[in-house]
Structures are given as C-alpha cells and as structure tokens.
Nucleic acid binder design. Structure first.
Lengths: 209, 209
DNA sequence: AGTTGTATTAGTCAATTGACTAAGCCACAC
DNA sequence: GTGTGGCTTAGTCAATTGACTAATACAACT
C-alpha cells in the first residue's frame, strides 16, 4: 500500500469511527481522543489530517450526504412503477433506523443548527433531495394522471419529505405508534389512484354498451 | 418576597436562561458558568438548587413540555370548526419559529437521543400530543363525515404530527421551499371536504327534481 | 442583641478538552 | 548506507469543564 492510499485509508477509518460515535454517543460527546481510540489511531492525527475537529465533522457531513443523495437518486431514477419506488423508499425507513443511518443524519443536523458554517451545506443537500423527490413525483403524477391543480407536485414532494423526516424523528425518540396505519393509508391511496386510472382506461376504450 | 418564593424566582431565572441558551447556542454549549452568567446568578447555585446540570435540563424539559401540551390541549379543545383549529395550528408554526420555541423543543429532543434517562419523558409527551391530535381529528372526521376506512383517525393524526415536525426540521435548517404550497393543498382539501358535506346535505334535503 | 439556619458567594479541585509540537520512525531514492 | 521526506507518536499547553466547599451574608425568630 502506498503512503498516499494508506493515509486515505486512515482518514476513512476516522470518518467511519466518527459515524459510529455519532450513532452511539452523539456529536456533543465526541472528543479527539475518544475518536482516535474508536478509530484505533493516535489522537494527534485528527489535527494533522483534518486540521481540527470541526473540519473532520465537515468531512463526515460531506461523505455522508454524498451517499445519501446518490442512493435517493438511484432509487427514484429506476424505471419502475411509482408505487414500487415508494414502497422501497418506505422500506428504507426501517433499514436505516436499524443501521443507525438516520441517527447520523439527525446528529449532523442538530450539529448544524448551532454552526452557521455548516448550514449552507445542509441546505444544499436538502435542495438536492427535494429536486430528486419532485422529479420522481412528477413522473408519478404523470403515471397516475393526477390533477395537479388539487395536488401540485411541489406540495406532494414537500409532504412526502416532511412526513418522512417526522417519522424518523418519532422513531429516534422511541415512538412508533400510528406509523403503520399511516403508511397503509398512503399505500391504499396510491393503489386507488392506479385503479382509478385503469377504470378511466376501460371507460374510454369500451364505453357503456 | 419570602425566601421560598425568592428561591423559586431564581430557579425560574435559571430555567429561562437555559431556554434562551438552548435557542442561541444549543445544549452542547451550555456550561454551568455560562448559564449562571445568562441568568445573572452565581454558578455555584446550579449545583445548590438543581444538584447537577443534568437535573436542571430535566427541569427545563418538564416545564417546557407542560406548557406545550397545555397549549395544544387548549387549542384543539375549543368549540370551533375543525378548519379553524387547523389554521390556528398552522399559524403557530410561524410564530414558534420566530420565538425560538421550536428550537428549544428540538434541542431537548437532540439531547434526549443520547440520554436514555430522558427518553421516557419524551415518549410520554409525544403520547400526550398524539392523544390530543387523535381526539381533535376524531371530531374533525365526524364533522366532515369522513370515510374512516380510507382515512383512519390514527393515520391522519400521525400524518399531521409527522409532517408538522418535518416542516419545523426543514425550517430550523433554513429551508422553506414547498411549505406554502403544501399548506395550501391541505387547506384546499379541508375546504373541499366541507363543500362535499354541504352538497351531500343539499342532495339529501332536496333530491334532483 | 444574639442565635440560628439558610442563601449566596468566591474559589478550589481533578479531569477533560482542542490545539499544537518536538522527537523519532520508516520507506524510499540515490 | 545514507540522507531525506513525510508519517506517527507521545506528550505539553492553557483553557474549560462539572462538582464541590469553606466562608460569609443575611433574615427570621427569640
């Protein structure tokens, strides 16, 4: 292994360790020494590699959000019926809670609330996410021939995005009530949209005899 | 002023100062000395009055959530059309962001993610809030004669609760896009429910001649 | 006025923090 | 084999932390 790639590997170990600590103890309880111990490296390296604890957390935020957006994009870009994508997105909810993925994301957000220099980065990620959502929902609206006056795409995307984060927030606090009922309701609504469209097709192709 | 009430007043000053600091710098940046300075009191009193910083924050959480629930209860318990209550709840969204109310609530939540001893308290608050919401939405469903098979009350309450918190989360990060469109969409939906009910009344009272 | 007990203050304490550095290490080029 | 250049280590530094305490101020009661 060359020096360069070795150093990069160690940096990765630091970033991985930071994510694990975000999950386990939260951003407020990460110190250079604790982080170095978790990464199995010397605490002086935090300063040598990243300049400061703050810079390191910025790197964590960057790497994490890149992955987040990439996954969202990949999922919604797939050429599948909208309802399938939706169901996959909802299944991610459970996976991500178990994996601690959500905890990382929310800890980074909580950190950014009090660090103006991180806010911009967070806003950019949210915008990208919104773009992906809007594009996906646009295709969904087309697929279901939805009345976009009653259901504007941005409103639907905002609804999906916000209730999604609301659910995560509840789960992080240990509350799970009502979520299953909610997801079922939405699923039924999507199914009914499919059926409505199908029945419109039937009416059109073979009007009442 | 008696000793007792003076002490209580000073305790209140500490709790108020803690709320201000939660808004301004977040839970991770509150120390006993900084808090005491903000409260205009001696830092030794934190230990003398509250035992520890942790206990003090628990007191902040208790006082805050009591007020939160009381307000929610008062609003939804009022004898007014459902849409009026809804609009008032939505107008709180803006007020609370400006006042910093939301920031306090979310900082306390972020704190609780990493303090198991606070989780239980948070869960209880969320349950109470859900109860209030479900009761209000039950009345709303009755008012609009909504089909509770398609729209179960718990699902609607969960939807309202989660997207509400999602919106707050977005705003705390400085993102406001799509919220207006979303709230308009919901408002239009409620209006359409009222009209649907009115038209059902008309059809019933004077069937097609 | 004197006693008593609580409220309040200033200050101490060990522990921990982020930032930084001197010293040595080690792989590689020459 | 001998520099040479970075990598890595252990350790230093002042600052800050939460917890705690001795000393004092003060109010209420006798």
């Amino acid at each position: 292994m060359t020096d360069v790639s070795e150093r990069l590997a160690t940096e990765e170990r630091f970033l991985d360790a930071a994510e694990r600590l975000l999950i386990r103890v939260g951003y407020a309880n990460i110190s250079t020494r604790r982080l170095a111990e978790e990464a199995g490296a010397n605490h002086g390296l935090v300063h040598y590699y990243f300049g400061s604890m703050e810079q390191l957390l910025i790197r964590v935020l960057e790497r994490f959000t890149e992955r987040l957006i990439a996954r969202q994009r990949a999922m919604y870009a797939a050429d599948a019926p909208f309802i399938e994508k939706w169901r996959q997105a909802m299944s991610f909810l459970d996976e991500d809670l178990d994996s601690g993925y959500e905890k990382i994301w929310f800890e980074l957000q909580a950190l950014a609330w009090n660090r103006p220099e991180l806010q911009g980065r967070l806003i950019r990620v949210r915008r990208q996410w919104t773009e992906v959502l809007i594009e996906a929902f646009q295709r969904g609206c087309d697929e279901y021939e939805l009345d976009t006056n009653r259901f504007p795409v941005e409103a639907l995307a905002a609804l999906a995005g916000t209730f999604n984060e609301g659910i995560i927030l509840n789960r992080l606090s240990g509350v799970h009530e009502g979520h299953a009922a909610l997801l079922e309701m939405v699923d039924r609504w999507l199914v009914s949209l499919e059926e409505a469209k199908a029945s419109r097709r039937r009416d059109h192709e073979s009007p009442v005899p």
